[in-house]
Design a protein around this nucleic acid. Sequence first.
DNA 1: TTGTATGCGTTATCAG
DNA 2: CTGATAACGCATACAA
Lengths: 349, 349
Amino acid sequence: MKNPTLIEVAKMAGVSTATVNRVLKGNGYVSDAARRKVEEVVRRTSYQPNIVARGLRTSRSYTIGFIVSSITVNPFFVNVARGFEAAALRQGYSTIIVNHGGDAEREQNAVHSFRQRQVDAIVFNHATGPQAVHLAMASNIPVVEIERATTQEAPFVRVDNYVGARDAMKHLIDLGHRRIAFLGGDPALFWPDPGRGRSVEDDRLAAYNDALAEAGIAVDPAMIRLGRYNNEPPLASSAEGYEHGRRLLILKDRPTAIFATCDILAAGVLQSLYEAGLSVPRDVSLIGFDDTLAANLTPPLTTVAQPMTELGEAGFGLALAGIEGRPADGDLLLKTSVIARASTSRLPS
Amino acid sequence: MKNPTLIEVAKMAGVSTATVNRVLKGNGYVSDAARRKVEEVVRRTSYQPNIVARGLRTSRSYTIGFIVSSITVNPFFVNVARGFEAAALRQGYSTIIVNHGGDAEREQNAVHSFRQRQVDAIVFNHATGPQAVHLAMASNIPVVEIERATTQEAPFVRVDNYVGARDAMKHLIDLGHRRIAFLGGDPALFWPDPGRGRSVEDDRLAAYNDALAEAGIAVDPAMIRLGRYNNEPPLASSAEGYEHGRRLLILKDRPTAIFATCDILAAGVLQSLYEAGLSVPRDVSLIGFDDTLAANLTPPLTTVAQPMTELGEAGFGLALAGIEGRPADGDLLLKTSVIARASTSRLPS
DNA sequence: TTGTATGCGTTATCAG
DNA sequence: CTGATAACGCATACAA
């Protein structure tokens, strides 16, 4: 019932702790007789090593700290956290998840708490800025950033937002749309990834502009609505999407299609469309980004899916590399994919 | 830069480790001079105790294991986990979250892993069954169950589902609806809480029946659609809601209002309504449960809100009580509240 | 009021 | 091939 200690196991098997350890670790010379006895006891007592004691001895905790900006507002975060946690578990690592909610002080406290707990690595899914990341690195803890980078030093996984947004635009343009609105984060409000000098928002907006240019469609500033993806009610991004949608729909020459760079934003747009008595996709086509809420919306939303689970898994891969001292790829790039559902259709001619 | 050890702090302050500890813990007699010296060093080095070492010594890890059935599919779980984590953090506890995804073996592994890590308590937000809970208790680890109980022994927090569902029905009936459909989990498929012999599903369905009876409305079996809230695609509960919605809407005498006992289910119903060309709430009113997706749906969904954060906080309270050996209330009951949004309206007469 | 010494459970070194 | 034994960093009983 109660887990024995290594010492007790050794005693029961009539050998020393060193021998038990050798059997458990599978290295060093052990006679078959001794091995059998130890294995027998281990099995019988279902002995499991005390990770705390091991951590003290090896200064490794088999625990990873995962700092998230706000896991509750955007399902994106839970999904990558989930992917990370599952990958970690497979390798015997546990994950401690902490939300900073945009508060740099809470983020810093999290790093401190992680340090005290001897976590083997710290992963940021949106650091508030480089400070916390540097703080972690200063303690010689391997650090990883996911989706957005605030430093050049930490290994980093993200999605190719430019290509993803281009795909969204291609989807719309292929359906015959030419009057396409863009609704997304304002590049001026987000820091660029230091490594390449561009932010997620830069990529997405550039893709929009480039796609129009390539299709020979003039850019109409009225079709571009930028904001901040707000994480806190009452101006959460869904409300923001609603507001932008309203503005777009009262235009005399309103868009026939809208590209919202986040499903939550798109959810708000859907509400404004409904309120305006417009039908989707008959009157207006709508495409989102992320594939979080998309399948649950009405109508089911066509969207650019992010590989959230893979983002988490890759993040863990980088963390593990850091832990084991292997060189880690600095800037991993994953692919998005357009999932066509019911919110987009061919422009009636 | 590097965190010093207690011993180093003692050396720097020119005192013994015992004295440093006394200063840190604030108990025992310490001269002012010694106290000042120690505090000075602690501040200067920003010393923080090594929790792993402390854990080995005290056999407390200041870590709590939180086992969730599937944090990714229903935002309900993230929200209570978030509430729990925040409350825990305030008291210096970290939370390790593990998903079992309905798999009892994974759940068992989680318990084992938690035991190895010397977690101070284990919390279940839907245990798959009593086994894992008992396994945890057998290791003398305080256990808490949230929302659904599988044992009588573990302290338990939940919401009053009967009252919540009655409120939903009252909302609809007050609006003049009499032909009201019920869409929820099949009581036959869910284990009752052992303490009271009733399940969440029992409560909600009973509330539906009682409300109709009290209003003098005959129960029409065709209006009751039971199922399982499925957590895995492709039959996730949104698809289930869609399916049930379709069946309800092709009835010759279709409902004027629908009570879906989960926002995700309601999201699916909304899709079926849209597809059928029906307008909400003009043609059909819809009320959900949980308040997870509700605000993001089209139209914004009237729903019975669960106090998810509080559920998590209360769960932590019970866990802490268990850790500190205080008696914990066995069965905490929290209140729901109806949030009226745009999906319900008075029945046109 | 202060300090010494020991043990928590593992790991790993170093003699046998 | 095997077994003592010394850390890891902290908490604490006991002595001074």
